[in-house]
Design a protein around this nucleic acid. Structure first.
Length: 140
RNA sequence: GGAGUUGGCUAGACAGUCGCCGCCGCCGGUGUUCCUUCGGGAGAGCUGGUGGGGGAGGAAAGUCCGGGCUCCAUAGGGCAGAGUGCCAGGUAACGCCUGGGCGGCGUGAGCCGACGGAAAGUGCAGCAGAGAGUAGACCGCCUAAGCACCUUUCGGGGUGCCGGUAAGGGUGAAAGGGUGCGGUAAGAGCGCACCGCGCGCCUGGCAACAGUGCGUGGCACGGUAAACCCCACUCGGAGCAAGACCAAAUAGGAACCCCAUGGCGUGGCCCGCGCUGGGUUCGGGUAGGUUGCUUGAAGCCAAUGGUGACGUUGGCUCUAGAGGAAUGACUGUCCUCGACAGAACCCGGCUUAUCGGCCGACUCCCGCU
């Protein structure tokens, strides 16, 4: 059995990491009360960042719960997901959704993300890296 | 047994699988530093495996007070501003707590109270009402005294004027002590008794305050200070994103050295042309990292002082420490079916939210012996 760990380098750690995803988000999937932005990385595994604002999820207990569920979900799906940096955003009203539903939503979102990533990489492997033009732009 | 008051404790349980963050032990890898008899050996950091152990709250919340800590400052004095406000004690400190006083509520256990000053001054009070702060005659009551007139059985009687009167009615949140007797034309602290009130003394108490205490004063010193104000006491400011350290990058800078026949670009090379000093060190400090960061006015257990809050002494324990932010997810079983809710530098309080459960003390009612 493969080990399903979730160490630190599977997360987006710095403000720069987050900005990179926001500036050059290639994929965008929606779930009930949730939205994920993603951009490919060249690490070979996914990385997760979470944005659950106080404005959208008022109570700290709910914010903690939802973040845990999200991390748990990515941990379990880490070998299915492509090498992308994901930023998961909460929208208003997520705190009313129960754990089971959140899990199903996240599972559905990762599957769609996987399919989109496959679709965009397969036809043009040479032009590749949807992130390379963005990176170029940043450099200039 | 029922109803209630009050103080404390607790915050679903168990099992399995997979994780997350510190800590400790063991085994590697990498790696630099140190030691060396040059064979090696030892240790910090990073990293992988493995074993053990720990991992949210009573409010972690609101950020309403009070401290510690840190930096800025120099804090001594005054003004301004803010806060506190019966008394005494506790405390690092407090707006908190304990005990006491006073007032109010409750049959009671108990509960509630911005509870200093209105005799330093200024201000405010709608409507109603005659009158609202140096009181005031609308209704009512009274005509004793004075004047005028009428009348008379010559005692007096009546009417009017001038008035008197705060007992009664009425208005109002509030009408300037209460009850009774005397008194009077009718009344009135006008007089007296009792109650109440003010002032002084005495006694008790550290004090707030209290008193069948003594004396004295006919007697208010109306309300409002959560109006200004006065009095007493307290308060420097900002906060862990405080602050300290390491430090890629980059702007501009300083010192020293080297060289203006130099370097870079163009070009195969030279000339030429274009651009331009170069290196090292220091300083600076962005991204990022390290630290502050959990041993503390700390818990627990005794003994002891105190009515109590709490203090003193002795012993034992180490009990989350993250950092885009750990403390979880899933499955199963059971029951009483699980509320409010998530640490972010740390403590002491207050306030607010909250499904329940357990224990102690006390009060009232009913029943039984």
């Amino acid at each position: 059995m493969t080990c399903l760990t979730f160490p630190r380098h599977y997360r987006l750690l710095t403000a720069g990491d987050y900005r990179h995803v926001f500036d050059s988000a290639v994929y965008k999937v929606h779930g009930k009360g949730l939205m994920a932005l993603a951009t490919p990385n060249d690490l070979g595994h996914p990385r997760l960042g979470l944005v659950f604002s106080k404005k959208n999820v008022r109570r700290a207990v709910d914010r903690n719960r939802l973040k845990r569920l999200a991390r748990e979900s990515v941990r379990h799906s880490q070998y299915r997901l492509p090498g992308v940096d994901i930023v998961l955003l909460a929208r208003r009203g997520v705190n009313e959704v129960d754990n089971n539903t959140v899990h199903r939503q996240l599972f559905g979102m990762w599957r769609r993300l996987e399919r989109e990533a496959e679709k965009s990489t397969r036809p043009s492997r040479s032009s590749t890296a949807p992130h390379s033009p963005a990176a170029h732009q940043r450099r200039g």
